[in-house]
Amino acid sequence: MPRENHVEEWIPFYLLGGLDAYETEMVEKHLPRCAQCRAVLEDLRGGAQALPYAARPIPPSPRVKRDLFNRVHADLRANSAASQARAIATSANWFDWLRVPSRAVALASLILLVLSIAWALSLRAQVDQLHAQVNEQRVALTLLSKPSTVTKDFQATAVQPNARGQLIADLSDHRALLVVSGLKPLPQGRVYEAWLIKGKTPVGVGTFVVDANGVGQILINAPEPLRVYQIAALTEEPEGGSALPTTSILMSSQFN
């Protein structure tokens, strides 16, 4: 703690983003109460504000702007469709209201508008899905190219002894790629679910299905860095996944 309980010694690092969470909290609690420290903050702020410009500006590729505004426009469409749907749902006596023929026409065209927005959104959803796939492949490639990435055998238990799998992971990262083969294709409504187990707690990290040849893959994005988990495992679950595993473990791998 800086002398006299003032925080002025920490203020340069507060402006530079170089305090830990505790120190940041101390500064933010102190500043509203102390004109002296606020004066130091104001004195140094201008210098800190210049720092982003110390990096040479580089125009992003056009893709960045295109993707951003696709998201923004989809967001606008989703909100306008939602508010129009709300308007219809909340109009109280809308049967009475509809007796005026011009209003019926207006409602029909509104419904048409909502339907066409829904159609545009479903197209948008397909494009989003493609984007997600491309992005997933890119993440997988990044993972594969990292020097700290390790490959672990994902071993089958006696339930499906012919299954084979590999877990490609950087244990300091949250992401891992799980690739399996030789698993039996599942009936409608059933999926394979991947789990990471920390102590005695399994955390579901995604579901997937395999193709006719029993091949499947999933990009895992764990809530915590992988090194905090001891085991990765696979079970069969109902579509949508389960809160906890409900069938026996089909495949597993130990991290440590």
Binding site: P52, A54, A55, R56, P57, I58, P59, P60, V64, K65
Partner: peptide, 10 residues
Amino acid sequence: AASALGVALK
């Protein structure tokens, strides 16, 4: 955006 990319890239 160009300044932001400069920061992120650095």
